[in-house]
Amino acid sequence: MRTILFPTDFSEIANNAFVYALNIAKSIDAKIYVLYSFLEPVLSATHAGQPELLGEVYQSIELDQFEVFRKKSQRLHEIAEHENLNDVELIFLFEEGPLPFVVQRLVKTEKFNLIVMGTHGESGFLSKVIGTNTVDVIKNVQNPVLAIPPHAKFQGLNKAAFTTLFRDKDKSALKEMIMMANATGSKIDCVHVLKNETVNQVLLHTEAWKHEFPNEEINYVLLDEVESVENTITTYLLENNIDIFAVVKRNRNWFDRLFTNSVSNNLAFHSKVPILVFHEEK
């Protein structure tokens, strides 16, 4: 059985992302590990009044956090029931520590096929677009991460865009994308931006990929660069009603540019279109 890790803070943004996690889990026959992590404050003995009370203070904090976790977990069961997806298996995890570090720890012991997260805007433009915790998780784990922005509303996954340089290293990510697309009934646009090569050169790659994936419904799209690769891609996504945008994280600079170029387009796009980030094969 496949597994999805769903970190949550039980906010409305996270609950909205949970609907995506449920639907994907149902489609690919996966169970969901719901992760709630909390941070204990750093206290000195003087804060507790007496050194021997410090352990009791920490225990009290943990118990309070667990009570929050217990009560708010019930809301997720209610969402699943409302979506008629209460047959999806949910496993709840209660962990102490910063979320990115907790996720790193968990992926070492459990094979998660996908991590689904709601996004939260914080300081810095990249963080405002997809959230500090989400950025940290993407940069520090090798698992695919699906980031669900606040204004995304699940209405099925009908059309996906997968950006590629037609490199061999992109094929494993495309195979994962095909698996999800087949399960959810999505069509895939395989998008490439022309830079220093000719159309004929790239068509040789598309023909090779068509032979490698002969039974898949993939639409190969070649775009002329306008201003930048990142701007060209985001404009295409906005104009073509894309439900999910898949990208292979090749390196940090390219990944950051994708979110920081063309500010107005990116804000419009990233406020409503989920982003599926794969890591390049090593």
Rank of each mutant, 00 (worst) to 15 (best):
L238G: 10
D256Y: 11
Y36W: 04
G156R: 09
A17S: 13
Q59S: 15
F18Y: 11
F94I: 03
Q142K: 13
I61V: 14
N140K: 11
K71I: 13
L222N: 08
A173S: 15
V88S: 05
N200V: 07
L276M: 12
L39W: 03
K31Q: 15
E216S: 09
I244F: 07
G124L: 05
L203I: 12
I275R: 01
Q59W: 09
A25Y: 02
T109L: 11
A181K: 01
G156P: 06
L267R: 14
N240D: 05
H82D: 12
H205A: 08
G121E: 07
E110G: 01
H151P: 00
E89F: 10
V145P: 00
A268P: 00
G185L: 04
F6H: 03
F154R: 01
E83C: 06
V116Y: 04
L22F: 13
L76Y: 08
S172N: 12
Y220A: 06
K195H: 10
P51R: 11
I13M: 03
K272E: 13
T3W: 01
L39F: 08
K210A: 11
E281I: 12
L276R: 00
G49Q: 09
S271L: 06
D64C: 02
M180E: 02
N231M: 08
I188N: 01
P274Q: 08
V68M: 07
E40R: 11
R252G: 05
L146D: 00
A246N: 08
L53H: 11
I115D: 02
